[in-house]
Design a binder for these strands. Structure first.
Lengths: 198, 198
DNA sequence: ACTCGTTTATGATTCCAGTCATAAAATAAG
DNA sequence: CTTATTTTATGACTGGAATCATAAACGAGT
């Protein structure tokens, strides 16, 4: 969201996290603006039965964890490093000082919020109907479009495990495996060396 | 979001809609900021099978339809009057001029976006697991908290039909009816004259 | 090359929300 | 008041994703 040069100018700390390390946890007070510098970060929830739900996966230079700063609420989900990752961090107070001094950056941040709201609206609608094929295709199409990838058929490599797709769509691994196979049979996706192409 | 006196000062139009009338439609270009003056407005999608999904229901003085202004995308859902309703409308250009001139209002708008994102994140997580009881309770709890209602048990009257709850949770009416009965038996809600209290 | 943990794969079975049909109760319209 | 429409309610049946079990294929590490 914010250029690397500019963010360091603003006194951001750069933190390192190992794979599977927590950056913050659900229920904690929101104190910082975060932005991915390298690697990947996911936000997730766990249901009572232990089943994971992945709200989103972020890679550089996306920001995350800022909505609770605005809404003045606790974190509604955990942030966890999916891979070894580096993250910029700016204290809440500094962040707001900065926004007020830079209306155009504030607008960028608002745009980021609106974009994520859009994604969530689409996913909520898709999750509400239980059809596994649509759930999976929507996630894949979203990722493809996010990656600003050409819209050519079966050229976008989906870099997610079947389990991650399951956790993003609320399905079970077995269902994802079976559904992706059936989608491949319908020529909606292609499977090459176990990787999914959309 | 914005006070009635202030919004008229800013040259907002006030429009009237009959029950079930469309304010805008999915896929249209976003040209205005909207705010409810009276009545209720819902945003919804229709699946291929004709099943409705209600993204949210708004009443005064909540704003709606502004995320696409920021994200510069088409409307991802329809806006429809649930009851006879009045709505303020400000052209996109004026809206942004206004935001840039009033950083504190821009902050309010960002807060509104963040709050809705929060709601959607919770609902997405809840929709992803198929347990009907949790889906319904989450919606009810959210509405109760939104109404800034006391947290006393079974004092909040849910002013939704079973069908609306179904469309908000992605369940079927029959399932909602049966699940609410079973929730009443477990003392999670109370049913008085067919109305649900949480 | 071998071991261990992860990921993908497949079959059999269960369970529960969806579906369909039908109707009573409540509310709106005339 | 009477009729029409909407909302709530119930029972019987079905379908399909979850669940459980088991195993093959792959990748990381030694």
């Amino acid at each position: 969201m914010i250029s690397a040069t500019e963010i360091t100018k603003f006194g951001a700390e750069k933190l390192s996290f190992q794979k599977d390390e927590y950056i913050f946890r659900e229920g904690e007070k929101a104190l910082y603006y975060y932005q991915v510098a390298s690697g990947e970060v996911k936000m997730n929830n766990y249901h009572e039965d232990g089943k994971e739900f992945i709200q989103a996966i972020f890679s550089a230079p996306r920001s995350f964890g800022e909505p609770p700063l605005f809404a003045e609420i606790e974190y509604p989900a955990n942030a966890v490093a999916v891979t070894k990752a580096e993250v910029y961090r700016i204290p809440k107070k500094e962040f707001f000082k900065w926004l007020l001094a830079n209306p155009s950056i504030h607008l960028q941040v608002s745009k980021g919020l609106a974009t994520r709201l859009h994604y969530k609206a689409i996913m909520a609608s898709e999750l509400s109907q239980q059809n596994p094929e649509n759930r999976i295709l929507r996630i894949l199409d979203y990722l493809k479009q996010q990656a600003k990838h050409s819209s050519k058929k079966h050229t976008f490599k989906v870099d997610l495990t079947r389990q991650q797709i399951a956790d993003l769509t609320g399905l079970r691994v077995e269902t994802v495996i079976r559904t992706i196979k059936s989608l491949a049979a319908k020529n909606e996706v292609e499977i090459i060396e176990r990787k999914v192409y959309r």
